[in-house]
Design a protein around this nucleic acid. Structure first.
Length: 130
RNA sequence: GGAGUCGGCCGGACAGUCGCGUCGCACGCGAGUGCGUCGAGGAAAGUCCGGGCUCCACAGGGCAGAGUGCCAGGUAACGCCUGGGCGGUGCGAACCGACGGCCAGUGCAACAGAAAGCAAACCGCCGAUGGCCCGCAAGGGCACAGGUAAGGGUGAAACGGUGCGGUAAGAGCGCACCGCGCGCGGGGCCAACGCCGCGUGGCACGGUAAACCCCACUCGGAGCAAGACCAAAUAGGGGAACGAUAACGCGGCCCGCGUUGUUCCCGGGUAGGUUGCUGGAGCCAGGCGGCGACGCCUGGCCGAGAGGAAUGACUGUCGCGCCGCAAGGCGUACAGAACCCGGCUUAUAGGCCGACUCCACCC
RNA sequence: UGGGAGAUCGUCUAACGGUAGGACAACAGACUCUGACUCUGUUUAUCUAGGUUCGAAUCCUAGUCUCCCAG
């Protein structure tokens, strides 16, 4: 796997993964992003995005946020601990330019990398909650 | 040169690095890797209409309900488009218009006003005729019966307009012209219409149907989470109700058609994959028919198909706009496909092309 | 995706097509030594743009926003 790539395996795609993050996870808050994380027992980090209509009513704005976050995650993912992380956008995010948002995301990645994950709790069973 | 109207079109370009998705090829046991290919819009938007497609019955009958509403044409269809008529706005090019029917019925019209509708008469005018009074009489007076709708005033709206005659005063009461209604003929795509001609009626049939309603036409219901296939799993558990004059499919109701147990509560279980999924009322060029919307023929082309959801990030050069003497700086719209089309509506920096109108000046 | 409902003073709500009313709140005054209560008065609104009508919160069309329902 190319080190700077972002294949689909590195994305959170199941509702159960999101549900697990909602119930038990650590949190970090930034000016325009909010993220939650938990160890996943895999050799790499995984990214999930939750950009709601609260962040912006325009689909083109929400797509821009998601693409910028994916790009940012792609560049730093091999320096991150093996956690699942879901990023939520706040309402102020849409008013910022691309470079400002990337800087904002980088600050969060650094804070996430600084946190030493607690020693390997067992991998979350993928049973989806109803 | 300035101001404007209509129609059509574009809505950044090129290069490099990293990255994502579809498809094809190659390598690899496999995970995957490499190369190539294609990868948002004119509105993809709002979801306001119309269709295709799928299932329910082959989409059937009636009632109810909803929509449309000058005429003709275009179209798969439409509430869309084109042409024409009528009305309105503008000097004009042009633009705008739910624009059928209140002599089928019912209703409404605040305030004002005499009166708001099968007409009536407040102020006014008259009082010829009848009545009363004065007078010998001629005649005069009163305004009781009565006549009148010309004038005043109210209102959004009050039963044609102007002129002449006529009269007691008046009045389509009569006449002329204008307007209006009806009929016939011509014109108009056998139409709307009322452009022209002829005849006829003294002449209201008031307004309102985006009031109920009437008339004409259209509409069966649901929606790609439609629907189809594959695999896996579970238990045909307990209770209650209805019962073939029943229940469900089926949706407001009835008929009709189809199926055979159906429904509710408690408890338990499953909701994984494939397909539908993009070649179509498709796009481009040329020719022909038509005022036009559009149609027909010939040739060429293939241009997204995701599924926690790809089409991105950065750098450089150029273009365009604004600021600045300059170096340079800033900006570069509205906005992101989700079954697919045809429309409508709304948003949109800047720019290009064509046709036409008005004003000013020059030849 | 489909279907339905709504928008009226700062807030909650009324109003056959005919001067948009009430309650709470705010402000001013009265009562009181002061405050509260009470009384009186005042201010403030029809989501936006068009249309129908003599006249529109009401009827119609388009838009904006909010809420609800089904899957």
């Amino acid at each position: 796997m190319r080190p700077a790539g972002l294949p689909r395996e590195l994305r959170l795609r199941l509702a159960g993964d999101f549900a697990a993050l909602r119930t038990s996870s650590g949190r970090l808050g930034g000016r325009c992003f909010h993220l939650r994380y938990r160890p996943n027992g895999l050799p790499h980090a995984r990214l999930g995005l939750a950009i709601s209509k609260r962040a912006s009513k325009l689909a083109v704005e929400r797509n821009r946020l998601k693409r910028l976050l994916r790009e940012s995650f792609r560049r730093v993912r091999d320096r991150l601990p093996p956690v699942d992380v879901v990023v939520m956008a706040r309402e102020q995010a849409v008013h910022l330019s691309g470079v400002e948002l990337l800087a904002e995301a980088d600050a969060l990645w650094r804070r996430l990398a600084a946190i030493r994950p607690e020693p390997a709790e067992p991998a979350p069973d993928a049973t989806p909650r109803h």
